Computed example of a mutant assay.
Amino acid sequence: MTAPMQIMGPLYTTLHQRNLYGRHLPAALRTTLLAGVFASMAVVLAAPGGSGLLEQLPSIFMMTIILRVLAGCLHRLESTRMQLHHRANHDSLTELANRDMFTEAMFGALTEPPRSIAAIFIDLDDFKGVNDTLGHAAGDKLLKEVADRLRSSVRATDVPARIGGDEFAVLLRDVADPSDAIAVAERFLHSLQGPMDLDGPYRVTCSIGIAVTTETTQLLTPGERAERLLQHADAAMYQAKTAGKNQYRMFDPRPASGPMPTTATGDVTFAEASR
């Protein structure tokens, strides 16, 4: 049986000769070195004639440490890469998707096999007054609460985003009918009816615009369709705000003086809708 000091002695000497195990080292690195000691011992003692490899133990130990350090570096690099990717694609205040991620998701949805998608554009009503009267800290708190309520109002496949100061948006994939988008808008409006705690109860409202892709836009490129869809949702949102706020409007592609489009059964397809 090999005495423990026969194994530990060369390693201990190597560590101190190379100044690799001092109190100045971070605890995590000292732990790595210690783990390397035991890993090296396991390699040597498990090998046939392991006791004869004692003179090679310092080299085996150093190789073990190098491999463990490299593995740790790779793990930290991957973790850092994921963090940077998250920061680049998410709003730092609300953790919702940012404008870039929202645009990319919309472009991706439009490049897939033909299907209808919808864009919901949301603008908080009179948000400037919150910052002016309660301060920016209260405004940030309100935005985070609004984001939480929006997140709970959408479907699992939807992409909620903060695309501006007090502007939010939602991408809805696989919209079978405009009523799918209307249901999301109604849930969100309903969620805002409950007061928020901003050094006291505070209620906020919003104006919402909804636009759904139509057959007439299929001839456009995905980029043109995405831009057109957002323009329509934005226009519908301003209609809701002009009509008195705290409501939603579905974008109506018909001319202002034209008839309301209907289905074969007489049902309205893209009618204005308000809460």
Rank of each mutant, 00 (worst) to 15 (best):
R173K: 15
P114C: 04
T111N: 13
T31Y: 14
H86P: 04
Q6S: 05
E215W: 14
V44G: 00
E95I: 00
L110P: 00
Q6F: 05
I122L: 04
R225F: 05
E95C: 04
R225C: 12
M101Q: 14
A3R: 07
M41E: 05
P259G: 15
R162L: 02
R225N: 06
Y21I: 02
T2V: 15
Y248T: 09
H24K: 12
L25K: 05
G129D: 11
Y248H: 14
I208K: 00
T205L: 12
P4Y: 08
Y248G: 03
G164T: 07
A88M: 03
T2S: 10
E224M: 12
Y202F: 13
R87S: 14
A181H: 00
I122W: 00
A88I: 06
T216D: 06
H16F: 13
D91T: 04
Y21Q: 01
H16N: 14
Y21M: 04
V268K: 10
C206K: 02
T263D: 15
R30G: 05
D148Q: 11
A176R: 10
P58L: 03
S152P: 09
P255A: 12
T13R: 07
A42K: 08
S179N: 09
V170F: 03
K141Q: 09
A235G: 07
R18F: 13
T111L: 09
Q83F: 10
P261F: 14
G108N: 12
T94L: 01
V159M: 01
P201S: 15
R149N: 01
P195Q: 05
A264V: 13
M101C: 15
A256E: 09
L229R: 01
S207G: 10
R30I: 11
P259T: 15
I65L: 14
V37S: 10
M63T: 13
L67S: 07
L220T: 04
A271S: 12
A46R: 11
E145V: 11
H190D: 07
A271E: 13
R254L: 08
D140Y: 09
E227H: 14
G139V: 00
N98L: 01
V44M: 02
A243P: 05
H24E: 13
G266Q: 06
S274P: 03
K141W: 06
P10M: 03
L230C: 11
K245D: 03
H86S: 10
P114Y: 06
H90A: 02
E215F: 14
M101S: 13
S152A: 13
G223N: 07
A147K: 05
D123C: 04
G244I: 07
L29T: 13
K141H: 10
E215K: 12
M196A: 11
T216G: 05
L189A: 09
T217E: 06
S207H: 03
D100Y: 06
M1Q: 08
T269M: 14
K141G: 12
P259S: 15
N246S: 06
F107Q: 12
T13S: 06
L172A: 03
E167D: 09
V69C: 08
H85S: 15
M1P: 15
A28G: 11
S92Q: 14
T205P: 11
G164Y: 06
E145T: 14
I65V: 15
Q239R: 15
G22M: 01
G50L: 04
L230E: 02
V146D: 03
F102L: 08
R115C: 08
T94K: 00
L29K: 04
